[in-house]
């Protein structure tokens, strides 16, 4: 069964079309990397799917139905830069925010929520920082807190916007270990990713996006030089054919 079905979705910022006729479907238990050049509409795509940005046309089905009915099954990790890290709160509190939907209206978080948040913080290796103000954390630590906040939602489908951007190597390994664990538990994860070098190691499926879907499928068959060049506009410099990219050159 397909967890996510996207049919002919288009979206725009003011008058600039950012996404045009985007269609794809995501099978259950897959770990998909969404890659594409800057301005390809990767973040916008996630926002449109989650109805945080209006779509102009097309249909999106979550678990075969509309998002509204299955909101609690869908988790979202926004870009780290999208929030104010000087906000007066600590790591534990941020993680608990992931449970606000479950706690429900008019209720305050209880001890049991605190305990659960502590467990998840421990899982991402941040238990010692639970009472640190969030601006005192490094970029990698902030990203771990964000991930913990998503894990605590206990969703079946996760959208993550650049969770590996600007994090240290240890955090990158820790995050990927958790994403693989999610996949092994049968959860479905979509990750906006910027580093073409690691795509083959990290994801079992890849979606090339540049305003529309350039290519989509299993990493082994889809992550080809040809598709990369198609998505990135042609002039990608390869160090060794098929192994690593030292940089991308856009006209």
């Amino acid at each position: 069964m397909n967890i996510l079905e996207v049919e002919g979705v288009s979206a725009a910022y003011r008058k600039n079309t950012v996404l045009n006729d985007v269609s794809f479907s995501i099978p259950k238990g897959s770990l998909t990397g969404i890659v594409g050049p800057n301005g390809a509409g990767k973040s916008t795509l996630i926002k449109v799917l989650l109805e945080l940005h209006p779509k102009l046309s097309g249909n999106v089905y979550f678990f075969g139905t509309s998002l509204k009915k299955v909101k609690s099954k869908v988790g979202y990790v926004p870009q780290r830069g999208s929030v104010d890290w000087d906000f007066p709160t600590d790591a534990l509190d941020v993680v608990m925010m992931g449970m606000y939907g479950q706690i429900g209206w008019l209720k305050w978080p209880k001890k049991i929520h605190r305990k659960k948040a502590m467990e998840v913080l421990d899982k991402v290796g941040m238990a010692d920082f639970s009472h640190h103000q969030i601006s005192e954390l490094s970029g990698g630590q902030q990203q771990r807190v964000f991930l913990a906040r998503a894990l605590i939602q206990d969703a079946d489908l996760y959208f993550m916007d650049e969770p590996l951007a600007g994090v240290d190597a240890a955090t990158e390994r820790a995050i990927m270990a958790i994403l693989r664990e999610l996949k092994n538990k049968g959860k479905t994860v979509l990750v906006v990713h910027h580093d073409l070098q690691t795509v083959e190691d990290y994801f079992d499926r890849v979606l090339f996006l540049n305003r529309t879907v350039v290519a989509h499928g299993n990493t082994s068959s889809t992550f080809t030089t040809q598709n990369i060049e198609k998505a990135y506009g042609g002039s990608v410099r390869w160090l060794k054919e098929g192994i690593g990219i030292v940089g991308t050159h856009l006209q």
Partner: peptide, 20 residues
């Protein structure tokens, strides 16, 4: 609505995705 005020202030995108 204390926790809703806190979340919509800190991270409106997450708040919206949770249905607030």
């Amino acid at each position: 609505f204390y926790k809703e005020w806190k979340l919509t202030t800190f991270d409106p995108a997450l708040a919206a995705s949770l249905g607030i």
